[in-house]
């Protein structure tokens, strides 16, 4: 049996006195799209930060490729193939689109692989190539999201961690972004995605976890969760008639 690509085992995390993650377990297998659903302050962003090593678990352990990430620096995590697409895009606004892409490849050497990855990003997002010399802060929201995804791909990640890829995008764009996420996954990148847009997320994810005030309250294959009364009520915008 092969080990999961990423695994959280009973992870607790605190922000000062705030208990943000409570004995959380996740398992992400290589090749999957896994989605993390939850409202505001449910611990979604903290999950992302714990994967990247920005937040350290106070208890429990995170494993990547079967090895603990305890004491592993963020730089080393990126080098081993974990790349983030940050919440609200968080580009470097006063750097050009090209420089932002370069920052995504920060831990890697320039050369043939860099050029290949750049070509791959341009193939996925022709608009990014058009905007290459523009300052990232001057792009539209949709274009910024493309650059943010492209920037993460420049790290040639095995695991792409996406924080709210649909946030602030128009419905047409959301669909486009989700198509691209599926395409990236098809090309061999495992995807762990935090989302509020449960409808779209469950449509493309293999499995999902539901996070509520720091604890996993539900998990399972997307198809099953889509049928779940509680999910339909809380996340899919369907009103239950009393």
């Amino acid at each position: 049996m092969t080990e999961p690509l990423l695994e959280f085992k009973a992870v607790d995390a605190h922000y000062g006195d705030f208990h943000v993650l409570k004995a959380v377990d996740y398992t992400i297998e290589t090749g999957e799209i896994v989605c993390l659903l939850g409202g505001n302050a449910s611990g979604k962003s903290t999950t992302m930060k714990a994967i990247m090593g920005i937040v350290r678990p106070t208890r429990g352990e995170v494993f990547y490729e079967g090895q603990t990430l305890r004491g592993v620096s963020t730089t080393e995590r990126v080098r081993r193939g974990i790349a983030p697409v940050l919440e609200a895009r968080r580009l470097f606004p006063r750097m050009t689109v090209y420089e932002n892409l370069e920052m995504g490849a920060y831990t890697r050497r320039r050369g043939r692989e860099f050029d290949e990855d750049l070509a791959r990003v341009f193939a996925l997002f022709p608009r990014v190539e058009e905007r290459l010399r523009q300052l990232a802060g001057t792009l539209s929201g949709g274009e910024q999201q493309m650059v943010a995804i492209g920037r993460a791909l420049m790290a040639r990640p095995k695991l792409l961690c996406m924080d709210e890829p649909s946030m602030g995008l128009s419905p047409a764009y959301v669909e486009q972004v989700f198509d691209i996420i599926r395409e990236i996954n098809r090309q061999g990148t495992t995807i762990f995605m935090v989302e509020q847009n449960a409808n779209m997320a469950l449509a493309i994810a293999d499995r999902a976890y539901v996070l509520q005030t720091g604890a996993v309250v539900l998990s399972g294959p997307s198809a099953e969760l889509r049928q779940n009364e509680q999910i339909r009520h809380a996340y899919l915008g369907e009103m239950t008639v009393a």
Binding site: T75, V78, F92, R94, E99, M103, Y106
Partner: peptide, 23 residues
């Protein structure tokens, strides 16, 4: 330069720069 760009990136968004692997 690579380090100079990392410096600008850190000034603009330190946490994001860290998540790109910048020390």
């Amino acid at each position: 330069t690579r380090l100079g760009k990392a410096m600008r990136a850190t000034a603009q968004d330190g946490e994001a720069a860290r998540m790109m692997g910048v020390d």
